[in-house]
Design a protein around this nucleic acid. Structure first.
Lengths: 135, 135
DNA sequence: TTTGGTGCAAAGCGTTTGCACCCGC
DNA sequence: GCGGGTGCAAACGCTTTGCACCAAA
């Protein structure tokens, strides 16, 4: 994986705690995690402040994707660098990338409103098949 | 306005502080406010905890629309009860309702992924004409 | 008169920071 | 060895809560 390359290019080192955090994130690359769940997955062996600082670092390297769900912030590693949206399961937190993006329509609407689009968010929440069929 | 009716139907009273909060929200019905800016608009004459509690009450009555922008939570009174999305100015916080909703496309995509859509968010951030033309 | 509402102060909670020590590179 | 990284503890900011008093209905 070129995560290490990304880090060193930004002047960051690859320490043991950092590697562990990345491991957990890679194991859950298709799932959104909260800080809490990441911390637990690390068996609380790494200080919470270190977890937060590393999320900042990964974010600074453009490796993290963040979503706000209700009042908590969720994140995952970015697999593809291009812009995309997700189907997010409210039960298990699993995510599926979708190739749909409303930007063309939004551009047209924004033009009608004389509005310059800088960014947009689109998140779809619901229930994946596994969670729906599970008893 | 039937806000009072909505409140009483839910078993809430219309007190002076509550009325003042609603006044400010109505004056800014086309603009997203933060808790802080609402508090300031009230000249800090009402306790912050009261502001928070009233936002809860208004939310419980379905009168409030909330958005997460970065790390802060913004809100405004709901004018129309039907589902809709906004163009949100990053400079002045003004909002414009758009009549576009990606739900049809999302439904189709979700079906392909065997995913049951429960909710979705779409927010468009950018700059309104006034903020772009202002020096 | 009853019951929800308020201000005040304190607590809660997730997140950030200061600091001394540690360890990749 | 240098400069970033870590754990620990304390601070922080936003939000919530307990409580005695107040006021809408």
């Amino acid at each position: 994986m070129d995560i290490k390359k990304q880090l060193t290019q930004h002047g960051y080192k690859l320490t043991k705690p950092r590697q562990l955090i990345i491991d957990v994130l890679q194991d859950n690359h298709d799932r959104l995690l909260s800080v809490e769940s990441l911390y637990e997955a690390l068996d609380r062996a790494i200080d919470l402040s270190t977890v937060y600082r590393n999320l900042e670092v990964l974010d600074a390297c453009g490796l993290i994707y963040r979503v706000q769900s209700g009042d908590k912030s969720l994140f995952k590693l970015i697999c593809q660098t291009d812009h995309h949206h997700h189907l997010i399961c409210l039960q298990c937190g699993s995510t599926q990338v979708i190739d749909y993006c409303p930007l063309p329509e939004l551009g047209q609407i924004a033009r009608q409103h004389d509005f310059e689009v800088a960014a947009h968010t689109l998140e779809v929440f619901g229930y994946c098949r596994d969670c729906r069929t599970r008893p």
